[in-house]
Nucleic acid binder design. Structure first.
Lengths: 114, 114
DNA sequence: AACGAATATTCCCGTCAAGGAATATTGAGA
DNA sequence: TCTCAATATTCCTTGACGGGAATATTCGTT
């Protein structure tokens, strides 16, 4: 069962596949933030911010640190590492990424054999 | 503009955030396939397979080559490259990936200043 | 031209996710 | 203990999405 790649975890992807949540993630790249801050900066109402953060939290993308009244949310590395290694398993498709010079040369060659 | 990714394209993510479509993508890793093959191997009915392939196609994850009666679907590299560079922009979070030894040392240090 | 194989499209239906508004919870402090 | 600030939770409604079944389209073959 737990053998080879069932594929990327779906919940991570669907958590990210929503604009507000994607914005939250982008925002948190620069550091941990409290719910109020997040809501303010993204123009969200507090309850919606909390809901989206719950989804992100349930999917493991984000973790929370309790500070008195506030909850400080932070990005967790694991889901990104997982995405990274999943995407890397498609190297064979994206050969062009590995070496820019190589890529450039490949581009030139394509003009000869299209 | 060319700074950090404005954010990953949502449609790519939501296209992948569905089990059957994820399975199709995994299946296509080993090479192009016709709709019937895909449906067969994944235990899908043909119409559902077509629908999912349309979503994948609309989002640019897959492209189609027409061969008489059949449509042969193939993975396109671009979305994966995009995901790759997006995920890479989170390197600062995933430092632990770079060097396992470094990670191990970091773990030890965390026991001293928590 | 007619038929069959392969695929796409349409219609209907049930489910689920997201926003809005109101309310509950928790903690700090007077 | 009362109150305020910060956050989570609930209820409701609406719209999007996926599956099922049937039908339309397209191409090769006879």
């Amino acid at each position: 069962m737990s053998g080879t790649s069932p594929g990327m975890d779906i919940t991570t992807l669907s958590a990210l596949a929503e604009p507000n949540r994607m914005n939250i993630v982008q925002l948190l790249r620069s550091g941990p933030l409290a719910v109020g801050e997040i809501a303010d900066r993204l123009g969200l109402r507090q309850p919606q911010a909390s809901k989206h953060l719950k989804v992100l939290s349930d999917s493991g993308i984000v973790e929370v640190r309790i500070d008195a009244n506030r909850r400080i949310y932070t990005l967790r590395p694991e889901p990104f590492q997982a995405m990274d290694s999943w995407v890397q398993s498609f190297r064979h498709l994206m050969e062009e990424r590995f070496d820019n010079l190589d890529n450039y040369l490949r581009e030139l060659q394509n003009k000869d054999k299209p």
